[in-house]
Design a protein around this nucleic acid. Structure first.
Length: 311
DNA sequence: AATGATGGCAACCGCAGGCAT
DNA sequence: AATGCCTGCGGTTGCCATCAT
């Protein structure tokens, strides 16, 4: 036999919480801790389901929760992580101190998703919406060439930067050799792509953002990820990030997102913050240029996740 | 001023994995 | 080993405020 049911559903209050209920719940948890959510309502004198109490505490009453408008940094962090992880709000919330997954989810659904759509970026795939006619092989080819050249240039630049990192950072922080030797490398070498990759994977320690490129390119079971025919590539939403990606982000957040700040994790420099401003505000007249000056490989240099946002 | 449309957000619902019985 | 609850998560709904007509 299992346990007794959590709540019988009878005589339990639902709907919005009153200040009195909030006070009871807060006072009880601050004095006793929440312990078992199942038994908490009775102990706290609440006519609520334990699940409802938990939700209220986590999303509203818990100390340290930051409410109100999201900052630019927080918006960027959400978009970056969503591009990589999809709708995994709990994981995303871990990288936004004092924000709840529910709040992030709501903000995404009500603001960011619409903003990206308005800019012509698919909020699901994080790719610029490209209307490729199947019969238009020349257009497809053009996009492929553009995508591949952009990708190669970005990778080459990142490899150059990794060399600089090695000189300035002998301990290897910020480089993929930080992956412990006894751990399987979650980012196996590319098998079919450019010579840049071959070189970088055999003789150089890649910067992390390039590792993330590898993750995408090696994409899960092969259905997802970025292919050389990137324009038509299956979007990130179809790519199930390997578990190691989350572990990777968690253990390398200082490099990936940056240091934790009051406004979340960020590695934005004043330079790419300007780019972000361009991204966030468009051209000021509601239009957005088709070129990649907003989300291009300049931005990619600062964060690999953005690679999927353009092209 | 009244009414309908839209947006924002808190809360609920249902599922999956883990765990207690 | 089987059963079924607990917890956490993502998706969805419903209420309220604001805006437009």
């Amino acid at each position: 036999m299992g346990r007794t049911p959590c709540c019988d559903g009878a005589s339990l209050k639902r709907g919005p919480w009153t200040p009195e209920e909030d006070q009871k719940l807060s006072a009880y948890i601050q004095e006793h801790g929440h312990g078992s959510w199942r038994t908490l309502p009775q102990k706290a004198g609440l006519q609520r389901c334990g699940k409802s109490c938990r939700l209220r505490w986590i999303n509203y009453l818990r100390p340290g929760i930051k409410r109100g408008k999201f900052t630019l940094h927080e918006e960027q962090t959400i978009i970056q992580l969503h591009a990589l992880l999809g709708n995994r709000w709990a994981v995303i919330a871990m990288h936004l101190p004092r924000r709840t997954d529910n709040e992030i989810k709501n903000y995404w659904n009500t603001h960011l998703k619409k903003m990206l759509a308005k800019m012509g970026i698919d909020p699901v795939t994080h790719r610029r919406k490209v209307h490729v006619t199947l019969g238009s092989s020349s257009a497809t080819l053009s996009h492929m060439v553009q995508w591949e050249s952009t990708r190669l240039e970005a990778e080459a630049r990142l490899v150059r930067e990794s060399k600089l990192h090695q000189h300035s950072n002998p301990l290897g922080f910020g480089c993929s050799d930080r992956i412990l030797p006894h751990e399987p490398n979650p980012f196996p070498p590319l098998s079919t792509h450019s010579s840049v990759n071959e070189v970088s994977n055999t003789t150089l320690a890649l910067p992390h953002c390039l590792d993330m490129l590898n993750v995408w390119q090696c994409g899960g079971s092969g259905s997802g990820g970025v292919s050389a025919s990137g324009v038509e590539a299956v979007g990130i939403s179809d790519f199930t990030a390997p578990q190691s990606v989350e572990a990777f982000i968690s253990s390398h957040h200082d490099i990936w997102i940056g240091e934790p700040t009051d406004e979340g994790y960020t590695n934005l420099s004043s330079d790419n913050l300007d780019e972000w401003m361009v991204f966030a505000s468009g051209n000021g007249d509601g239009s957005f240029e088709e070129n990649t000056n907003c989300w291009n490989y300049e931005t990619l240099n600062n964060c690999g996740t953005l690679e999927s946002l353009v092209f």
